[in-house]
Each structure stands twice: as C-alpha cells, then as structure tokens.
Design a protein around this nucleic acid. Sequence first.
DNA 1: ATAAATTATGACTAGTTAGTCACTTTAATT
DNA 2: AATTAAAGTGACTAACTAGTCATAATTTAT
Lengths: 224, 224
Amino acid sequence: MPKATFNKLKAEKKALITKAFLREFAVKPYDEASISEVVKQLGIAKGSIYQYFEDKMDLFLYLIEKANAVKAAYIAQIKRDDYPDFWSYFIELFKVGLNFDTEHHLESHFLFGLSQNLHSPSVKPLFDNMMQQAVQIFEELVKAEIEKGLFRNDIPTNIMAYSLFHTGRDMQEHLQFIGLVNPQKSIAEQLPVYHHKEELLMEHVQHYINLVKPAFNASDHDKS
Amino acid sequence: MPKATFNKLKAEKKALITKAFLREFAVKPYDEASISEVVKQLGIAKGSIYQYFEDKMDLFLYLIEKANAVKAAYIAQIKRDDYPDFWSYFIELFKVGLNFDTEHHLESHFLFGLSQNLHSPSVKPLFDNMMQQAVQIFEELVKAEIEKGLFRNDIPTNIMAYSLFHTGRDMQEHLQFIGLVNPQKSIAEQLPVYHHKEELLMEHVQHYINLVKPAFNASDHDKS
DNA sequence: ATAAATTATGACTAGTTAGTCACTTTAATT
DNA sequence: AATTAAAGTGACTAACTAGTCATAATTTAT
C-alpha cells in the first residue's frame, strides 16, 4: 500500500499521479512500464515516487486496487436475483461494464490491459491469485444455477465456471480482433474503449450468448 | 530468415543453438528473453548470434517457423473427412497435439509460451497476423460443418470460429490453472508438458467438449 | 520570526539490454 | 606451404531501467 506521504497529498495531485500511471500500465506490460518516463511526463522528480510508494510493485498493486474498487461498485449495482435467468443477468453485467468504461475510461483501459498481460513473469503469481478468486465467484454462480435446475449437472462445475469466465474475456478479445474496439488508440485519444460502439457491442454480446447458452442450460443433456 | 552462415553450420551446432533459444523464449516473453544470457549458457560469443541472424526478431521468427513446421506435420496427419463428426476430429487434433508434445517437448513448450505472451508490444502485430490465419482456418471448418447441416446456422460464422478457436486455448489454460500441467516446471525438468498426464488430460478435454458441443451442433436452435 | 518537520529533488549507483566491429582463429583453396 | 575466405570473438557503445540518498525547498508548529 502507498506510504502515508501519498495519502497526505492533496487530492488533485494524487489524482494526476494515479491517472498518469494508470495510462502507462494500461499500455505496457508491468515489466516494460517505465516509472522514469511517467515522472518525466508529470514533471516531477523520480525520487518523489519513492516517497509515495515502496517500489514499483507497491504502486502497481495500488492501481489494481483502485481500478478494481471503481469497477466493483458498478458490478455490485446488479444482483442475480433481480433477473429471471442467468443470461439476462450476464448481459446486464456487460452493460454496467459499459457504463464503467464510459465513466471511467482510464480504469477501464487499465483493467483491459491487465487481463491481456497476465503472463509477464513478475505479475504471474499476482494474476493467478486474482484469477482463482474470479473463477471461484463464477463457480458459485454456476452451482446456484444448477441448484435451481437451470444449468445442466453432467459437467464438473469447475470446468463450467472456467469456460464461462473465459467467455467474457473472449468476447472482449474478439471485439478487439475484428477491430471494433482499439484500446491502444482509445487511450491515446483519451476516449472510452466502447465509445459510440455501444449498440454494435451489445449485438455482438447477444450473438455470443446465443451461441454459448445451449452449452450451459439444462435440457436433454441433463442427467438429473 | 537466418543468414547463410547459420545454415552452413553443422547440424549439431545448429540444433544446440536452436534448442537453447527455444527454451529461453518458451519461458520469457519476447522483450524479456535475453540473448546475452543464452550465449553465456551456450558458451559462445554474443557476436556469433549476429553472424547467424539479422537481429533478435529475425531469430524469433526463425524459431516460430521452426516450431510451427514441426507441429504442422502432426496436424496434417489427420483429416476431417476421416471422422464422422467434427468433435471426434477435434479430439483427435488434441491427441496428435499430445504426440507432438511428447516427441518435441521444446517446440511444444515454446508454442505454449507463445500463445500466452501475445500482447507484448513488440510481438503484437506479429501475433495478430498469426491469429487472423488461425481463426480463418477455423471459420472454414465451421462453414463446412454448417454446409453439412451439422452445425447451427443462426450465429455469424466468425463468432463461432473465434469461440471454437478459443475453446482449445481455454482448455490448455485451464489445465495449467488447476495445476495439472506446469510448463515452467516441465521446461526446467526437460520433460514434456503432458508427461504421464495423458489420461487425465483426455478426460478433461472430453468434459470440455461435452460442455461446448451443444453450443455448436445443429438442433432445435437451427433456423434452417 | 525561528525552529522543526515534512516533502521534493535529481544526480548517482548498479544493473540490465541489443547490437557493433576491429581483430583472431579456423577452414578451404590454390 | 602460402594465400584467401569464412567463422568466431569479446570488449565496447549507447540506451535503458529501478531504486537511493544527501541536499534543498516548502510547510507547519512553536
């Protein structure tokens, strides 16, 4: 966590520093992100950063925590119980993600980049941990659906959870793949990733969900 | 491509150099892989490498080509037409992949690592290109299945292709996630990734395929 | 206004890297 | 055996990096 000095900083300066580093780590993998370059951009001394944070990793963890907290507030807005089935909930999750992106594009860019640079040696253990947690949450969701008789019960839940978790990631990646979104460019232009693409995006998500739905839903392949 | 000098080298030396670099690039992302370190291990001068290759990227491209060629020979062993449905073909693809891994674990490790370090800035364009090709192949496969009436036809083929392509990757990643395989450790121990895990692996693959099968197969959701 | 505490600084350390090139060694040819 | 061609070398360059620390500037407290 940041040192006391950083927290005592006035909010404006704190925000400027956070923003600059979010941008840097959004564009480059951890090991290639350069503190030297960011302080140059900020016009502050490199030594200052080490008054604020223990080291590079401390700074990085702070950014993750920060961005995750902002996103978590969006996710928490919706509850599974408010939807008739998992898939309408899943789509809604995507929609709040879209709001998050529009209203906090830097944090969104950062998390987007994070999910794509998971295998840099220095972040691997860290990321594995985050992944464990994420998949665990999905496994709970899956189990609840099975309990309700809405998901099939002939496949190990951990496999279903992992696949479901990845479906979300794959959708995002695919959007990038077909050039519908361009995170790198969006960051440079300081625009949200999905800016003015909301409808196309949701259409794409709908297709994806239509595709995977029969893989999870209980029906004839259910052995119960 | 490598310089003439490299090709004139006697096969044994060529193989040793190739092996050492495959190992290095298997473990680290492109930008973190160190030529200096490998030449130290090999006990040859750094200058020699630049007698063999134009630069780091030239060396890297050579390794990709090399590893891909070896794997392609395995893939080419089987043909879709020899199987009653896509999924038995898909499983067989996995099995030859397993053979490839057993018989060429270094190349296998390298390609494994490659698929996980795709977003390093320097390799991004390169990887995007490989991805385009891979997905294109999958899209052809999907189209052929639809033609045969075996896959559903109410989802854009590019979405089906992308999802299918990722299913393979996700399966691999999941095996790593649950600790069933450990590429880093396997490399250190100079063992194939899937060594002595073949049965567990195929069981896992079978589950995964059972899961996703209904997403692709034509049935009630077909609008034809 | 003075003293004390806090915050900011940037030159510096020790380490890394890819790539170069004048030179030496080895091999092939005459 | 002498000459030429090819292959191998390692010190060196230039460019980076994270992190340090004695000093200077600025706030805060007295």
